[in-house]
């Protein structure tokens, strides 16, 4: 190799005009909680569907003073999470962290951290399909009209079908929510376990869908209600056992296959939470980066295209 041909990127990779476009969309989204704002999604150096929407949102809000955390299925150490973190270290000059409580910006796919978020923090969701009505109504013109006129009967049809078929609402991720009593919103494929965390959250929640060219937002302390029927209300997923590493209960667990004989253990999907909970109780098998290098396995419910 010769002398490194360094390309000098603009701060945050995107050019200033693009960041303004995204910020304008973000401001509009914040002003109308849950409303999907169209934006001119740009190319970023990763494939569509790998978090390009989240990356553009992060790029437009991050600065050199920020501390960025990136999680994928709750883990800080997956390839995607590591790549995105390194990308911003290079193009935004931001520092990275894995600690939820320290981070100022958290980009996420599939989870909301177990550690409660605080005022001043920004949670950026990567969204594959922003339209909650999409699978029932394929026409964008029609879904927009339904949102505009608050006609959400269709959304309930989906839940109705679930109850008729399975005896309960079977949707366990991307569970539709009503934001601020007005717009029905897709919370991205986070497990329904995390839905209650969105409600009245002190942090700013931003959603970016790169492929679908939509941005939406939930401002701090905004009501986010999961839909349900009077006689079949929303029920988040529950786990009846604690994490086998840190012993936490009331957290979202991943199944980790441990041998070829069908053996498995259940551990926190949130690696930051698990590590700190384990060290707090002096747990033997502390979980630091590198020690548990399993690829994050889904729970089998995250079927959405990523």
């Amino acid at each position: 190799m010769l002398a490194e041909p360094r390309i000098v990127y603009n701060e945050g990779y995107l050019d200033e005009q693009t960041k303004r476009v995204v910020r304008r969309a973000l401001l509009k989204g914040i002003a109308i909680p849950g409303f999907q704002v169209p934006f001119a999604s740009r190319e970023v150096p990763m494939p569509r569907g790998w978090g390009t929407g989240g990356v553009q949102v992060t790029a437009s809000v991050i600065g050199p003073d920020d501390l960025l955390k990136v999680i994928d299925q709750g883990a800080d150490d997956t390839t995607n999470a590591v790549s995105i973190r390194q990308f911003f270290e290079r193009v935004a000059g931001s520092e990275s962290t894995t600690r939820t409580d320290e981070a100022t910006v958290i980009q996420t796919r599939h989870r909301i951290p177990e550690t409660p978020l605080a005022e001043g923090q920004i949670l950026v969701y990567q969204v594959p399909i922003p339209e909650p009505l999409r699978f029932l109504e394929p026409r964008e013109t029609e879904t927009r009209r339904l949102h505009a006129l608050e006609e959400y009967g269709l959304m309930y049809v989906k839940l109705f079908e679930d109850i008729s078929r399975y005896g309960h609402i079977a949707k366990t991720y991307d569970y539709p929510v009503m934001v601020n009593g007005r717009y029905v919103m897709a919370p991205s494929p986070v497990p329904s376990f995390d839905n209650p965390k969105m409600h009245m959250n002190p942090a700013l929640q931003l959603f970016g869908a790169g492929r679908e060219k939509r941005i939406y937002a939930v401002p701090p302390y905004t009501s986010v209600e999961s839909l349900g029927f009077e006689d079949f209300p929303f029920e988040p997923q529950q786990f009846d056992q604690p994490c086998q590493i840190c012993g936490s209960s009331g957290v979202y667990l991943d199944e980790v296959v441990t041998d070829d004989a069908g053996g498995a253990m259940y551990v926190c999907s949130d690696t930051d939470h698990c590590t700190r909970a384990a060290s707090a109780v002096g747990f033997r098998a502390s979980r630091t980066r590198g020690e548990w290098d399993f690829p994050a396995t889904g729970t089998g419910t995250e079927g959405a295209v990523q």
């Binding site: 006609e151 009967g153 269709l154 309930y156 049809v157 029927f229 009077e230 006689d231």
Partner: peptide
């Protein structure tokens, strides 16, 4: 449901 019925 379109007319607001919410009792399954």
């Amino acid at each position: 449901m379109a007319n607001g019925a919410r009792h399954y």
